[in-house]
Amino acid sequence: MTKTPRNFVHVDTWVFDLDNTLYPHHVNLWQQVDARIGEFVSNWLSVTPEEARRIQKDYYLRYGTTMRGMMTEHGVSADDYLAYVHKIDHSPLQPNPAMGAAIARLAGRKLILTNGSTDHVEAVLDRLGISHHFDGVFDIIAADLEPKPAPQTYAKFLKLHDVDPTRAAMFEDLARNLVVPHELGMTTVLVVPDGSREVVRETWELEGRDAAHVDHVTDDLTGFLQRLKP
């Protein structure tokens, strides 16, 4: 049976992930964070970079973030972890006034829901020049350190920002993070690489574009938003 994707005519709250969603995958900004995470794991556990990489990716897949795995398995402090892994060079990001204009014309609130930290969000949005278009940020601290795709994280987000999920849309680069939003009634959009540049991702991170819980897929978020009726 062919699925009928949900539309946007009823949407009054627009929810965006941050990394690899509000900027292109090929910028590979997350690659810097990824490398810092590996260094942190290696240093904390006194293991080789190769073993740290294995542990890092295992925890990422099982716990939603490597940080959650390190906290659960090894008692790591979230503050120490976040301060270390987000100390990166944001200069590869360039201002994106076209995206800003496309976001601005969306009717309703615009919120960010991320597994990163508010400091990282602010640095990214400042580089993109789109900070003023957003009405709020829900980060990993607001989530009580429980990352997406944990159901309780979405519940906390919806309650804190008084969001009716049946009148909301969610934009994400990981299909698994759209399962719960779709179950709650949100219109879901998966943002994928444009295919023209090399991206550094795990295989499973690029899967799911044909999943039933994905209403729309785009490799050009700005263009996708521009085509929506205001």
Rank of each mutant, 00 (worst) to 15 (best):
M1G: 00
T4K: 08
R6A: 12
N7I: 05
H10M: 03
T13Q: 02
W14F: 13
D17A: 06
N20E: 14
T21A: 03
T21I: 03
Y23W: 07
V27A: 08
N28E: 06
N28Y: 03
L29D: 07
Q31H: 14
V33G: 05
V33M: 09
A35G: 01
I37W: 07
I37H: 12
I37R: 13
F40L: 13
N43V: 00
N43R: 14
T48M: 09
P49F: 14
E51Q: 15
R53S: 06
I55Q: 12
I55D: 03
Q56W: 05
Q56L: 05
D58I: 05
D58Q: 15
L61T: 13
R62D: 12
G64S: 15
T66V: 07
M67Y: 08
R68A: 12
R68C: 00
M70F: 03
T72G: 05
T72D: 14
S77L: 11
A78L: 09
L82A: 06
Y84Q: 02
V85Y: 01
V85I: 15
K87T: 07
K87P: 01
K87D: 15
I88C: 03
D89M: 11
H90C: 05
S91M: 05
L93I: 12
I103N: 02
L106G: 02
K110Q: 06
L111H: 13
N115V: 09
D119G: 01
D119V: 04
V121K: 04
A123L: 11
V124E: 04
V124K: 03
L125G: 03
R127H: 13
L128S: 03
L128F: 04
L128Y: 02
I130M: 09
F134M: 01
F134Q: 02
F134Y: 04
V137T: 15
F138N: 04
I141L: 11
I141G: 01
I141W: 10
A142C: 12
A142S: 13
A143G: 00
A143C: 05
D144W: 02
L145C: 06
L145P: 01
P147I: 12
K148R: 15
P149W: 13
A150S: 11
A150E: 15
A155C: 05
A155M: 08
K156V: 01
K156E: 06
F157W: 14
L158H: 03
K159L: 11
K159N: 13
L160V: 10
D164Y: 08
D164F: 08
D164S: 12
P165H: 14
P165G: 13
T166L: 08
R167Y: 01
F171R: 05
D173G: 00
A175C: 11
A175I: 10
R176V: 13
V180Y: 09
P181R: 11
G185H: 06
M186D: 04
L190I: 01
L190V: 10
V192E: 05
D194S: 10
S196R: 09
R197D: 14
R197Q: 15
E198S: 08
V200Q: 13
E202W: 04
W204E: 10
E207C: 01
E207F: 04
E207H: 07
G208E: 07
D210F: 08
A211Y: 09
H213S: 07
V214N: 06
V214H: 10
T218C: 02
L221K: 04
Q226R: 13
K229W: 00
K229N: 09
